[in-house]
């Protein structure tokens, strides 16, 4: 993209991000918050796609973040920012530990492995009623606040979520542009060569995988403290699949792709809400049409042919 195009894109992004403040409607804020939360999950999945491994366990990591944050804030009495950080550390640590073993598996086997892992994480929430509350989930999760500043009102929470998305994007861009990104690209270009130069590529992939779990956990923590209620089925493989579809719709080659996808897919069911009976069919058909006719996603369309 040229410099002018970049500027236009940045302006458009800013306009979309600020639009809910202009609309000022409670429901628009609600949908915008869900776009931010689900968009973060899509970004987390995007990171795993960047290491060439489709992880279907990201919904599970979002669940780990949500449950950890909820339990830390509600039962351990930690303030929201600390609960959020705690949830991120826990999810990232679990991913790093698992990554040592599971990242050795590649390709479709990795997708299936993480499919099993994602289902297993949710079943753990269902089976162990103490402390996770079983199918009933956890309720009475304290609303988010930053010190004395309450984030309970929707506009305030949206502002916070927006800031978080922005910071996460900066961090992810840094990660992909920095050493790990370079290592990963050289691996993609010439794996034997970079191996012979002694790069410990598994360690780098593990770092990116842990980062992806951390982003998923942020998404989970925001979800828990926004809704005040969580239950296991919100984090099953279906949630990951939705995030995956966001990446496909938005374009997997672009960092903005998952967010573009979230921006389209989160409000989409709302458009079909009046026709309950046909809602799923219309949704499915739109997805199939997008995949068949726009295989590089809408993001790919906007970016032109400059990136593969």
């Amino acid at each position: 993209m040229g410099r002018a195009a970049t500027a236009v894109a940045a302006l458009a992004a800013a306009a979309i991000a600020l639009a809910p403040f202009l609309a000022g409607d409670g429901f628009v804020y609600h949908v915008a918050i869900l776009v931010a939360i689900e968009g973060l999950l899509a970004v987390s999945l995007h990171l795993t796609l960047r290491i060439g491994q489709l992880s279907l366990a990201q919904g599970g990591f979002m669940g780990i973040g949500a449950y950890a944050s909820a339990l830390l804030a509600r039962d351990a009495g930690l303030p929201f920012p600390l609960a959020l950080v705690g949830a991120v550390v826990i999810a990232a640590a679990i991913a790093a530990a698992l990554g040592t073993v599971i990242l050795r598996v590649r390709g479709v086997q990795f997708a299936l492995l993480t499919f099993g892992l994602g289902e297993a994480i949710v079943l753990i929430f269902v089976e162990f009623v103490v402390p996770f509350g079983g199918n009933n989930g956890l309720m009475g999760i304290p609303p988010a606040s930053l010190g004395p500043l309450s984030l309970q009102a929707r506009p305030a929470f949206y502002g916070f979520a927006l800031a978080v998305v922005f910071l996460v994007l900066l961090a992810v861009r840094g990660l992909l542009a920095g050493t790990p990104g370079m290592v990963l690209r050289s691996l993609a270009d010439n794996e034997p060569l970079s191996r012979s130069l002694g790069t410990d590529e598994l360690a780098w992939r593990r770092l990116v995988f842990a980062a992806s779990a951390a982003v998923a956990a942020i998404s989970g923590s925001l979800y828990a403290h926004y809704l005040g209620y969580i239950s296991p089925e919100a984090f099953n493989v279906g949630a990951t699949v939705k995030a995956l579809i966001m990446n496909v719709v938005g374009g997997v080659g672009l960092l903005a792709g998952p967010l573009i996808g979230a921006l389209i897919l989160v409000p989409l069911p709302e458009l079909f809400r009046a026709s309950v009976r046909y809602q799923q069919l219309l949704y499915g058909l739109s997805l199939l049409a997008l995949m068949l006719f726009l295989p590089r996603g809408l993001g790919g369309l906007l970016a032109g042919r400059s990136r593969p």
């Binding site: 009976r277 046909y278 799923q280 499915g284 199939l288």
Partner: peptide, 16 residues
Amino acid sequence: IVALALAVTLKGAVTA
């Protein structure tokens, strides 16, 4: 991925 989208569509078609 396309199989996942097909699953949603078939389920939706039968529901409709």
